[in-house]
Structures are given as C-alpha cells and as structure tokens.
C-alpha cells in the first residue's frame, strides 16, 4: 500500500513525532511504500538541524535524514508553518533577511498543496500529533 504520514507535533515535547518515525520504519519493513512525509504545525521542528539533544536521546532530524536517504523519502515541511516558527532554508533566510538558515538537509519547504496531493495519491494518510 502507498502511505503518507502527517506529523503535527514537535520532537521532545510529545511522543508523536518519534512514533511517526517508528511507524514509517515499520511500514517500510513490511514492504509498503511512503509517498510523502508532511511536517505541519509544530511538526516543522523535526526539520530543524539546530536541535542538539543529549547523546542518549534520539536525534529526530538525523533519523529522518537517514531513513529518507535509504528509501528516497519525500520529506516536505509546510513553508508557512515553518517560516513563522523559525525553520528556514537558505532561500527563505534570504527573503526574510535572517543571518542563518536551519532546515536540515533532506527536508524541503513547500506548500499545503503537497498535503492535498498526498491525500489524492496515497491509499492511507496517517496523522501523528493531531
């Protein structure tokens, strides 16, 4: 089956973002495919490469990057939700005249249309943190 995953909560505050990662891994292990992972609302913090958790805690952006590169996952971060929460790529940092950018490699900023499109082409859309 083709799945898409929507993540609405930030890492470390709630379990949902980490559960989503484990769910994605379980889907791939079971032979399913993932059309897109869409990071919305506070979930955009999953793509913040400035997150620096202690060594004995999970580094979610890194885990997503690793899973994405192993399985060519499409990791899309909602641009409106991200920019207002301070998760910017180089382009947006330039647009808003910020001194740095922090969107982790492997993630991409895009619009809500990417979520609508994911609902159209996926057999199942699973929300975490809703």
């Amino acid at each position: 089956m083709i799945f898409s995953i929507v993540i609405q909560s930030a890492p470390y505050s709630r379990q949902a973002a980490e559960s989503a990662l484990r769910f994605a891994q379980a889907l791939l292990d079971a032979g399913h495919s993932i059309h897109r992972v869409f990071f919305y609302a506070d979930g955009v913090q999953c793509g913040n490469n400035l997150a620096s958790p202690p060594q004995d805690e999970i580094n979610l952006p890194q885990h997503w990057q690793q899973l994405a590169s192993e399985h060519q996952l499409d990791l899309v971060v909602c641009i409106a939700a991200a920019v207002k929460r301070g998760v910017l790529d180089q382009n947006e940092a330039g647009r808003y005249e910020k001194s740095g950018h922090n969107l982790a490699d492997g993630f991409e900023l895009s619009g809500l249309g990417q979520l609508a499109e994911a609902t159209l082409v996926s057999d199942r859309v699973i929300t975490f943190g809703g």
Binding site: Q8, A41, D42, G111, L115, A116, G130
Partner: peptide, 25 residues
Amino acid sequence: RKAPYGSSAPREALDVALTCGVFEQ
C-alpha cells in the same frame, strides 16, 4: 477537536480544508 484560540490547530485545520477545496476535493 480543539477550542478556537488555545492552539494553532483550528487555523491550521482551516488552511488544509481550503487547500483541499482548491484541489476540488
């Protein structure tokens, strides 16, 4: 599921509703 101003959820839900509407769903 959430009250109007305690979180961003209602506004984000509305944005998704309007986007899906634009996609003629």
